[in-house]
């Protein structure tokens, strides 16, 4: 072998090895990506809920994307309480206005999943008469905001809109 060959040979080996690595990575991608939500799941129908049968003070639970969604028809008093709470008292400060639709303040729509570890909280319970998660004792107020306990953030508000005065479309 002369002195020039080793470099050419090394280049060849590196190129082959690099192509092998790229090929393996490219082949791995479909095998990984198949675990992500598929097209039918992504397109899953939004849920439409008729609000007319929900009485004041009542909370109903509907299913959206496999998760419970709470729809609370809040009383005047509950709305009042949620509004007068000072933001500095809140671990995750958000005003009540920002969690409901303007002019529809009586309707509180929440993803019913505790932000601690995913249990489903109970309505009208806990120290703040909002929601209470029995798993690890998180207390939420009448706006679904965390007040006490291990949960780090407020109950999530899903994307939703009013199709009409008595019809809400979640998702």
């Amino acid at each position: 072998m002369n002195g020039e060959q080793p470099t050419r040979r090394d280049f060849l080996y590196i190129a082959t090895g690099a192509m092998g690595a790229v090929g393996a990575a490219a082949a791995a991608w479909p095998l990984i990506h198949q675990m992500n939500p598929d097209a039918s799941v992504q397109a899953l129908a939004s849920t439409e809920v008729d609000l007319s049968p929900i009485k004041e003070g009542q909370i109903i639970t509907v299913k959206w994307r496999g998760k419970p969604v709470f729809i609370a028809h809040r009383t005047k008093q509950e709305i009042e309480e949620a509004r007068k709470t000072q933001l500095r008292e809140l671990p995750d400060p958000v005003a009540d206005d920002a969690r409901v639709k303007k002019g529809k303040e009586q309707w509180l729509v929440l993803v019913g999943v505790c932000t601690h570890l995913g249990c489903v909280p109970l309505g009208h319970q806990g120290d703040y008469k909002g929601f209470f998660c029995p798993c690890h004792g998180s207390h939420y107020d009448t706006s679904g905001r965390i007040r006490k306990g291990p949960a780090p953030t407020n109950l999530e508000v899903p994307p939703y809109e009013f199709a009409s005065d008595t019809m809400v479309r979640i998702g």
């Binding site: 072998m1 040979r9 060849l12 190129a15 082959t16 192509m19 092998g20 790229v22 090929g23 490219a26």
Partner: peptide, 20 residues
């Protein structure tokens, strides 16, 4: 395209190795 280029490289790699 990828596999054909890869096969070409693998062929020359093999040839170099066996040359010795």
């Amino acid at each position: 395209i990828f596999l054909i280029v890869f096969a070409g490289l693998a062929y020359f790699t093999k040839k170099k190795i066996w040359a010795s």
